[in-house]
Amino acid sequence: MAPSSPRPALPALLVLLGALFPVLEAQVHLALGDQRLNPTVTYGNDSFSAKASVSVTAEDEGTQRLTCAVILGNQSRETLQTVTIYSFPAPNVILTKPEVSEGTEVTVKCEAHPRAKVTLNGVPAQPVGPRVQLLLKATPEDNGRSFSCSATLEVAGQLIHKNQTRELRVLYGPRLDERDCPGNWTWPENSQQTPMCQASGNPLPELKCLKDGTFPLPVGESVTVTRDLEGTYLCRARSTQGEVTRKVTVNVLSPRYEIVIITVVAAAVIMGTAGLSTYLYNRQRKIRKYRLQQAQKGTPMKPNTQATPP
């Protein structure tokens, strides 16, 4: 049960008793410490339940005695229980600013109940206590990063956990790199292609790719490649955080150009084969000439096999 300003606490005290007759004549008295309560009683055949809401403040925090007394005829019964009243609001995550520009120093604080143990994104307070903070320099990778503060309080031997999370938004300028916007495309004429160029940034930048300042590249659209598509385009990504440009070149291969490439490759293969054949022929001719000269001089030829020892 949590104390608060002087207003009824939402939790209520509930007492159940059975095997009473005549149950309607039973008188019920409830008290929390020295505070007399006004219960609402619900009767059954031989039992009843009594429920009462309690108004508590921070001064009532701690262990209180709950007394339930029942009087029926000349008989009375009384039972005692203990109730622990505590205050444990959720921890508070504080950002220097929830939205900052890239490169800004950001302080993230986590504050909780004075007796609670807190951690911020898994980092405990040093020394263990109700407050911890992180310092960082905002980068684009921190955009959308969540900071979670967890607080743990021990109440009457039980651990109670509460959490709060806040998100950081980082504003950064446009980016155009090779991965998201290739700088060179080579496509066959009359083929179906989709030019892809995407800029990143926060806020998301506006992207335009133009050739000669007027002819647009149909980014993200499926198009039939024509000679008109060939050329160098200037892609410009712009946002409130700045702008960046990148050149993109489109090369179009005509069918005639492909035939020329095939012809050149075939000629190279034929010439290579002819050259190899000529080399082998000349080598064999030189070997035969050498052997003939050695035979005319009477110089014995060296045997190819090793002599057998006596």
Rank of each mutant, 00 (worst) to 15 (best):
C181Q: 00
V93I: 14
V28D: 07
E61V: 12
L16G: 06
P124E: 08
R238F: 02
A274M: 08
E243H: 12
P216D: 10
V219S: 05
A19W: 05
Q126M: 10
I160F: 10
F21H: 14
R77C: 06
L10P: 09
P203E: 12
I262N: 04
P22S: 04
Y233E: 07
I71P: 02
K208M: 07
D177A: 00
R227V: 12
L13M: 14
L210C: 11
N121T: 02
P195M: 11
P130Y: 04
T82A: 03
V223S: 05
D46H: 11
R285W: 00
G201C: 02
L10E: 14
G62D: 09
C110D: 02
T308F: 00
P195C: 09
H161Y: 14
I270D: 04
P205R: 11
Q81L: 14
Q241D: 05
A151C: 04
L120C: 03
V100I: 14
V225M: 15
Q126C: 02
C197Q: 06
E230T: 10
V269Y: 06
K97S: 15
V155W: 02
L10M: 10
V23I: 10
V225Y: 01
G33C: 06
G44M: 07
V123T: 08
V248C: 04
E61Y: 03
V118L: 03
E178I: 15
G173S: 11
I160C: 01
A156Q: 12
T57M: 12
R256I: 09
L37H: 10
L134P: 07
V260W: 08
R65V: 09
D60L: 08
V248M: 15
S55R: 09
A151Y: 03
I71R: 13
F88H: 02
G157T: 06
L168C: 09
A50T: 15
T263P: 01
P303W: 06
A9D: 15
P203F: 11
K247Y: 08
T273A: 13
V170I: 06
V70I: 15
